[in-house]
Design a protein around this nucleic acid. Structure first.
Lengths: 195, 195
DNA sequence: TCTCATCCTGACCAGTGGTCATAAAGCGAA
DNA sequence: TTCGCTTTATGACCACTGGTCAGGATGAGA
């Protein structure tokens, strides 16, 4: 059987993923080179390209894995929500869980901006579960919004506040905390949904 | 006199600035190399470093120049404002004038994220007139906010919406337009300022 | 033992930001 | 005009990046 060879390959991939994650958290997306990753994992640079096409691909994979683990909790909480306020809380619990770690916030932002310069990557990003896309948000809040209110727009505004807060966070002025932004988002969305 | 030499130097600097601006708008901050800039302007790469320490410095200069031209109008409009709503409109006129051009929005974002990885640059950015800093906003809206309301927080929230909208813009989903975000910001700030 | 597929290597490439000895040109004075 | 001196401009050079690829090592099956 060729199982052991495949297992070795998988193991290598995992080691590279772990190394990449650590380095991204430490030095950010732009600050990490592929040579850094392979060196940390104990492989030659060429090995990287057996598993991914480039830094973009491995980053996307890491981000998706991170989000997948946070999404389960969100789905459960949303199922329990009895009104729009509770639904928004579930959504913001999800958003907060993503960024509990500041280095994740930076990685998200760096990658988002980087992706915005590349059409293909932008498409992957929009399709992936990375961002809480507007239609998804619309679907989540649909049960509690009045007809005529665009759920997409509510979602986009919510995302603006969230991603703006990410920038606020990485710049480190510290004027706002988690609660401030959540309250503001809830206030805004509730006001608009009922208008 | 050495005037003609200085004039030539100034002229070179201007040519490089123009070339840099065009390229930044076209290809973004990360997509533009220093060799691109000097080549477009018709100089050798080394000439660039007579005028700036690196890409960061020339970018900061370009951004500050852009903002300086927009700030005059803002100051005038704010002086005429008779209530918080009008003041917010003046501020959003200013913000909109900055990124009327989509390529500016991307440049702002790219540079902001890039700066967030560098302590020195982050300080320059905070100090510069680049971002509508929280204290400045607080001062602008102070005449119309109730005591006990933190103008800094209002400013930070306003900035979150603005910068979140910049991301929304560069990702090009197009769910929101200028008016949506301005209305949302006004609604939020007015509600909080009067609470 | 002999193949052959898989996994891994590291020298190699073009291109990056940044440096610096050198060349060219402008300047004022003799 | 001619001679220094200063300012401006050059492009080869450096260490580094993302990415490639012929070839070496290792394991699987006959």
């Amino acid at each position: 059987m060729a199982r052991r060879q495949q297992e070795k390959s998988q193991e290598t991939q995992q080691e590279l993923l772990s190394a990449a994650l650590e380095l991204f958290q430490e030095r950010g997306f732009f600050g990490t080179t592929i040579a850094d990753i392979t060196e940390k994992a104990g492989y030659a640079k060429g090995s990287f390209y057996r598993h991914w096409q480039g830094k973009d691909e491995i980053t996307l994979q890491l981000i998706e894995a991170k989000l997948a683990s946070c999404r389960a909790a969100r789905t459960q909480a949303l199922a329990r929500a009895r009104n729009l306020s509770e639904a928004l809380d579930a959504i913001w619990d999800f958003l907060e869980s993503i960024m509990k770690d500041k280095s994740w916030a930076r990685l998200f932002l760096e990658f988002t901006i980087h992706a915005s310069c590349d059409e293909k990557l932008k498409a992957s990003l929009a399709q992936s579960a990375f961002r809480l896309s507007d239609p998804v948000f619309a679907e989540l809040v649909a049960p509690w919004t009045r007809p005529g209110v665009s759920g997409d727009k509510l979602g986009a505004l919510n995302t603006c506040l969230f991603e703006g807060f990410l920038i606020h966070g990485v710049l480190g002025t510290g004027t706002l905390d988690k609660k401030d932004i959540r309250d503001a988002a809830k206030r805004l969305i509730l006001a608009l949904a009922e208008a």
